[in-house]
Nucleic acid binder design. Structure first.
Lengths: 332, 332
DNA sequence: CCCGATATTGGATACGTTTTCATGCATCTC
DNA sequence: GAGATGCATGAAAACGTATCCAATATCGGG
């Protein structure tokens, strides 16, 4: 028995050529048709697979692309990851996954691991205020942001959903239904969205109705419950993510607020259960999978600095969680 | 400016020692206290990070652990992945993620990529009948199965939820409520569960009420709808996964079957929306995250062949999706 | 005080690949 | 026909690390 992965040297020997020639043939370099065929045959027969280890060391970079997400448990990020995987697979590139928990420190740590591994391409949903990214970029790795962009780094290509339009149509829809006191329930890293919200709401904006939770479910629930208790006069809420939406539904139920009679709800991100909920939730669809796929495309193209980013359309799907305000809220 | 990652050689030079010594110090070998400190200082000052590329090539294996899941979009697998990530992070090991789509061919392809990368440790939810795993194991990589085991490979350690007990309590609960015609709605790779189901049901088993869907949502829905239409006499259904449960709820709603009045439903796997559903779903909890974490532990320990596997407890959470059968089903 | 044992150290090698460079050969140009 | 040009090819040099091995220094016992 042979405890020995077949190497390029074996192939060269068996084919009666030099290793350089084998390497060239296998990576599409120039070679005479006859030698090419011979090498290819021998390689196939020996079931030779070039070792990424050797190649990586030589080129001082491991192939593969790093994927940094706040929370792989969140279906939105799950779908985003799926998009990345799909694209990466078609390029034969492995994907290294890391969960940042929206914590810049953990994010930095993960980036460190990636660099150590020689990964030089990264797709990330940046957490924190983005200070941590400066050294990373200086280290020379191709970065694409997804879903969010980092305040300080407008120069990095980003793939985003058109939140501005999404929020605008959602807010218009709600005001059209007569709502005036509309709350926004946000998560970490949504400064962008907050400003869009304020912008869309115009003079109606009430800063007390804009709350942000940290990443966890508990935090989201606490924020929602606190909001509903503190301001019983609000009539509609826009939840900036499926976790927040979930929390809002839960909190509303707990406080005996009926949706949509007492409270209208629009949630960012269409998830399967939005339809199963009662009432079915009106949502702003974000093309999570596409975001991931496009980001992967961008990061794979890499070299060309051209594409400053991509903006993907959002869509409002009206289901049953919003009602006209005429139906007055039941007194406590 | 210096376009040059600092290498072990730089450190050695700056510390006035040989590279071998630096390597030893950094990997915990023996060295005199004074040199150790000096090297450590210099390394810290130069911000030296050993390149995984060089190390990997030298040891002919890349660190890192491969994670092969059917579908990262499925929250269950999302949570499982989260468990793996948590454990891997504490060990400083990167995780390479691949989505098999429950397709043995894609699975084999992904394994190929992993081998090429020098990955020698893999956690997988095996798809297909497991034939594809024979060559993989011969290639000498440490494998741990999670969530399912592969029919042909009882020798590979596996981390499983105690499906047998879970199904038994669920079935007992349903029969206790008076149900006699109980269906099982399964997904791919659930032969094990099917036999547990038959076993738990005993003489009541009706093969026509046992259907399996492929992995996709559409397939799940089709299977559920087909089952409900074809056998309107069934009174309870056990869904073998949250995707199947979702499909069951959807199909029931579409066919105007009220849960739980017309149809009792128990779903495998507790997901956040189970509580938001109306009625809230009675579920069998599987510790998805733990499964991942334990699997990672096992694969990291690696060498010791000792642990044949782990069986984690399941739990029945009773909510509102099951009713006693006395309430006769409304005539069509 | 000397010898053997032990601890510490650095030089050299190998890991498998890509890429540079020089060589040989054939074809082309004037 | 001689020089120039191009192509296919293989030898060799990296890439950054871990480890083998020999050499040196330190120590204890006799």
């Amino acid at each position: 028995m042979n405890r020995h992965r077949t190497t390029i040297k074996d192939v060269a020997e068996a084919a009666g050529v030099g290793v350089a020639t084998v390497s060239r043939v296998l990576s599409g370099g120039s070679a005479s048709p006859e030698t090419r065929e011979r090498v290819l045959n021998v390689a196939a027969q020996l079931d030779y697979r070039p070792s990424a280890l050797g190649r990586n060391l030589r080129q001082r970079r491991s192939g593969g692309i790093g994927l940094l997400l706040p929370d792989i448990t969140d279906t939105f990020y799950g779908r985003l990851a799926d998009g990345v995987l799909t694209c990466a697979r078609s390029a034969g590139e492995p994907v290294i996954l890391g969960a940042t928990g929206d914590d810049p420190e953990r994010e930095a740590e993960l980036i460190g691991t990636l660099l150590e591994q020689g990964v030089d391409r990264v797709i990330a949903v940046p957490s924190g205020d983005g200070d941590g990214w400066a050294p990373t970029l200086r280290a020379g790795l191709t970065t694409v942001f997804a879903h969010r962009l980092s305040p300080g780094h407008a120069d990095i290509p980003a793939v985003l959903a058109d939140d501005r339009a999404g929020i605008r149509t959602a807010v218009d829809y709600l005001t059209g239904l007569g709502h005036r006191r509309i709350a926004y329930l946000g998560g970490p890293g949504q400064e962008q969205r907050l400003s869009f919200f304020r912008q869309a709401l115009g003079p109606l904006v009430d800063e007390e109705l804009v709350v942000v939770a940290r990443g966890s479910r508990d935090s989201a629930y606490a924020a929602a419950a606190g909001l509903f208790q503190h301001r019983p006069d609000l009539t509609a809420v826009l939840a900036g993510g499926n976790l927040l939406g979930e929390a809002a539904v839960l909190a509303a139920r707990e406080l005996d607020l009926r949706i949509p009679r007492d409270l209208s709800l629009i949630m960012f991100d269409d998830v399967p259960w939005a339809e199963l909920c009662s009432p079915p939730l009106t949502v702003i669809v974000q093309p999570a999978q596409d975001i991931g796929y496009r980001a992967a495309e961008l990061v794979l193209r890499g070299g060309t600095r051209r594409p400053r980013g991509v903006l993907l359309p959002t869509e409002l799907i009206v289901r049953g969680s919003c009602a006209a305000r005429g139906t007055s809220r039941s007194p406590r």
